[in-house]
């Protein structure tokens, strides 16, 4: 086994003077400063409310939406699978009988409290009918009071799939 001699740093006069290294560091920071003041800055900060994020991926779990059948009626059959799977217990379903012959059951009320929701996607996994999805791409939801954050069935049906 040979011995590898590691070169120690910090013993030359230049390194012991500190000042050349300090000026080197100051040069680096100044070059960043000047570049960012110039016409081609390297700042990747987006100006948020005006500029929307462009890195929302296809699989991003946004606000939920209820999907529809081909005849534009609600696909959900009020089986309570999603409400059962929900770890945050934020889904409130009230079922009623479906009379148009398409199916037997449908939700009368389907509320999701977004303040409780942890956006885990367990409801989407649990749904046997592909009736609930989280592909709306809505990443920020704004309301002025707590009640605004409880999404009703109509609001969930109105959410559209995000165009990629």
């Amino acid at each position: 086994m040979g011995i590898k001699v590691v070169k120690r740093h910090g013993n030359t006069l230049k390194e012991k003077l500190y000042l050349p290294a300090i000026f080197g560091g100051m040069k680096t920071t100044l070059s960043h400063f000047i570049t960012n003041l110039s016409d081609k800055p390297h700042i990747s900060t987006i100006l948020y409310p005006e500029e929307q994020p462009h890195d929302i991926s296809e699989r991003y779990r946004g606000v939920h939406r209820l999907t529809k059948r081909d005849d534009e009626s609600v696909r959900c059959v009020a089986c309570f699978m999603c409400a059962t799977a929900c770890p945050a217990e934020c889904i409130f379903i009230e079922a009623e009988e479906r009379t148009d012959g398409v199916d037997e059951k449908m939700p009368k009320r389907f509320d999701i409290d977004l303040l409780e929701c942890v956006f885990c996607g367990a409801c989407v996994e649990a749904c046997p009918c592909d009736a609930i999805r989280m592909d709306s791409g809505i990443f920020s939801f704004i309301g002025k009071k707590r009640e605004d954050f409880v999404l009703t069935k109509e609001q969930l049906l109105a959410n559209k799939e995000k165009k990629q």
């Binding site: 920071t29 960043h32 400063f33 960012n36 390297h42 700042i43 990747s44 900060t45």
Partner: peptide, 10 residues
Amino acid sequence: RVAGLIQDRL
């Protein structure tokens, strides 16, 4: 502001 610009933020 200078801190921001030096660190490539605003």
